[in-house]
């Protein structure tokens, strides 16, 4: 792909203007503003930068954010695979409706998700009133962050695994069964390796979304410094204190992480495509 020369081996018009507009608009709306972040960070000296991004309160927020996002993505990988399996393989009444509702976390504004989850898991809420007497406090604890991240990451694994599961050829399972494998062995040794690239892609997407998430978390988190304060909230706190440099430094760390995840997902998707093409 990269070695192809710039050619116009087609009669279709509009290459120059459309590509020009695309690059211009992309630069104006996305690249230029993002570069402001990098330039602003560059105004800090290296020790200042490290002191800001490695301060104890900031490090505590990384631990909470990344830990909860990792746990939520893990739960979503497991249950997302299960939901995709049930939706693809079994015929159930109302399946279409459930299938459509899986995308609810994409469509429901995060602030609505936030206040709703918070009220459901509060001490007097529908689920909180069941859980709290049993000693499980969800709202206003790190567990609440995990619940919110699980909610917003739910569709990713389902939607990446589902199409792969639909495309799987039945012959390979029949072959496994004919060769004497039981159902679990077939799943473990034949199906899971086929689904793995998609599963990991979904996991990575859910993880990345969880780390950056703000709206659905702040209502349920309790936002206690060192305990249940997520990194995006810390950026806002610094901004409200007019500590632009501090906010920017932390944002740069998160942006670097986003790039890393974007790269990972791209590589995973390339792997899935190669996997599927085999």
């Amino acid at each position: 792909m990269a070695t192809k020369p710039i050619t116009r081996n087609t009669v279709i018009p509009g290459f120059g203007p459309t590509l020009g507009y695309t690059v211009f608009y992309l630069s104006l709306i996305v690249l230029l503003p993002l570069s402001a972040l990098v330039v602003k960070t560059a105004s800090l000296t290296w020790p200042e930068f490290i002191a800001t991004v490695a301060a104890p309160r900031v490090v505590a927020s990384y631990k909470v954010t990344f830990g909860a996002a990792l746990a939520a993505a893990g739960v979503n990988a497991l249950f997302g695979l299960l939901v995709a399996w049930v939706l693809v393989r079994y015929s159930l009444p109302g399946k279409r409706l459930i299938d459509a509702l899986v995308d609810l976390p994409f469509a429901l504004p995060t602030a609505v998700a936030g206040i709703t989850l918070s009220s459901v898991y509060a001490a007097n809420g529908w689920l909180g009133s069941i859980l709290e007497p049993r000693g499980i406090k969800v709202a206003f604890t790190p567990l609440g962050i995990f619940v919110a991240m699980t909610f917003i990451g739910l569709p990713f694994v389902v939607r990446t695994v589902q199409p792969v599961l639909e495309e799987l050829e039945e012959e390979i399972e029949e072959a496994a069964a004919c060769l004497g494998a039981n159902r679990w062995q077939t799943f473990r040794r034949v199906l899971l390796p086929e689904l793995l690239p998609a599963l990991l892609t979904g996991f990575a997407l859910a993880f990345a979304r969880g780390v950056g998430e703000y709206g659905s978390i702040i209502f349920i988190a309790g936002n206690m410094p060192m305990v249940s304060e997520i990194t995006p909230l810390l950026i806002i706190t610094k901004l409200e204190q007019y500590d632009y440099a501090g906010a920017t430094a932390i944002a740069t760390v998160m942006l670097l992480f986003s790039f890393l995840m974007l790269l990972t997902v791209n590589l995973l998707q390339k792997w899935s495509r190669r996997h599927a093409a085999r």
Partner: peptide
């Protein structure tokens, strides 16, 4: 509709706002 160098990079950059935290 066209082939050109850097197409994949362009597609990745277009997707970039999805990977950035809303706060950023």
């Amino acid at each position: 509709k066209f082939e050109f160098r850097g197409k994949q990079l362009l597609i990745t950059l277009i997707d970039l706002p999805f990977s950035v935290s809303p706060v950023i």
